[in-house]
Design a binder for these strands. Structure first.
Lengths: 216, 216
DNA sequence: TAGATTGTTAATCGATTAACAATC
DNA sequence: TAGATTGTTAATCGATTAACAATC
């Protein structure tokens, strides 16, 4: 079969294109060229065409891309034609915000199982979901065939919890824990480390922000 | 002067190295080689050395890097020797979680000003900080010389709020709004789009997760 | 000194972009 | 048909990695 490697950045851009296409379709626009689409994001039009070309021929020469058709194709490619169940582990500040956030559900991602180590939280109902102890991760996630995990626990013990999710059959994990965690190659671990992002910002300010350097 | 372009990825890795060095120092380790450090993250040792070499010569041939010295150097390079004040705009689910999250403060980032458009929230006290209306962004951020913004408002109107932060003199913004926002070149906009990350996970599962494809 | 590891150059790899034939 | 824009190849650019002289 085809062994063409598709860059991760391409996949990320597809979902950004998709958001733009949704807006355009809602605005009643029918067609768009790669040039117009690229301008929305400060990208090169060849890059847009190449990103799409990894997956097929979706455009019409001389005309561009029909928005509705392209949108459906991108949704299919990204696996968004189905609703995904998500298992959240950790119900601290961040976990609570994630479960309260309505944005995911609109996009087809539903947090449908919540786990926490703290016995005081177990049994509570949050957004209509009963909180379970971490010992229930393996049976429940396996039984419900949940494929996506969200990890929002303290760094201590995070690897053990992640191992449970993997054992339960999760294939992809959105990880908010600022620690070096490992998963088998077959599992995708997507790190969201806000501290690392803030430090990058700090670097940017330290380099470009001030005419002369100043120490506090 | 030197016009060497330092890759963004290098800066991101520096802060990841730093976290590792902190752990090692706490564990009482004195020295580490680029090879050992690289193995922690599945990276190449040449990459570690090159990342560091952008900023100076921090190692000792034959021995490796002294952890304490390297750590101080990285903190200096990343601008972490000072505490940064952060202005948060938007006090919904995510904004509330961000302000309640204690992790930032430990790393030297303190949310010290909070703004929301909703008059019902203005005047309330959250984590010891009095919430202000968005009309106060420009005077307050400018007066306090706050350089980092966090944007956690709804997509509608987000650009206008971002413009206010920029007008107020912010140089870097951590953006949680899933929309295509623009800033001047001098300002760094770091997007954190959880929906995009989830879609990348969805793609991964759709491609690798199932032996045969199945539509719901 | 012998062994180890850095700092740095040169080679490789992969992603972006320019260019253009195909074609609507 | 003439003009526009795709899909794709080839050129360019930038980041990663191998290799090794310098040196602790």
């Amino acid at each position: 079969m085809k062994a063409i490697k598709i860059p991760e950045k391409t996949v990320t851009r597809l979902s950004i294109y998709l958001r733009c296409l949704e807006e355009l379709e809602n605005a009643g626009v029918v067609r768009i060229s790669s040039k117009q689409l690229a301008e929305q994001f400060g990208l090169n039009s060849a890059q847009v065409r190449k990103d799409l070309a990894y997956f097929g021929q979706f455009g019409v020469r001389g005309l561009g891309y029909y928005i509705s058709a392209l949108r459906h194709n991108l949704e299919r490619i990204l696996g968004l034609k189905q609703n995904w169940e998500v298992a959240l582990v950790g119900l601290g500040n961040l976990g609570s915000a994630l479960i309260a956030y309505k944005g995911f559900q609109e996009k087809g991602f539903k947090i449908s199982a919540v786990f926490d180590r703290d016995q005081a939280k177990v049994g509570r109902r949050v957004e209509g979901i009963q909180v379970m102890g971490t010992s229930r991760i393996v049976p429940v996630v396996r039984k419900r065939k949940i494929k996506i995990g969200m990890l929002a626990v303290p760094a201590i013990g995070a690897q053990a919890v992640l191992d449970l999710l993997v054992e339960a059959g999760v294939i992809a994990v959105l990880n908010f824990v600022p620690a070096q965690l490992t998963v088998p190659d077959s599992v995708k671990l997507q790190n969201v480390d806000l501290s690392v992002l803030l430090k990058t910002l700090s670097y940017h300010i330290a380099r470009t922000g001030r005419p002369s350097s100043r120490k506090p």
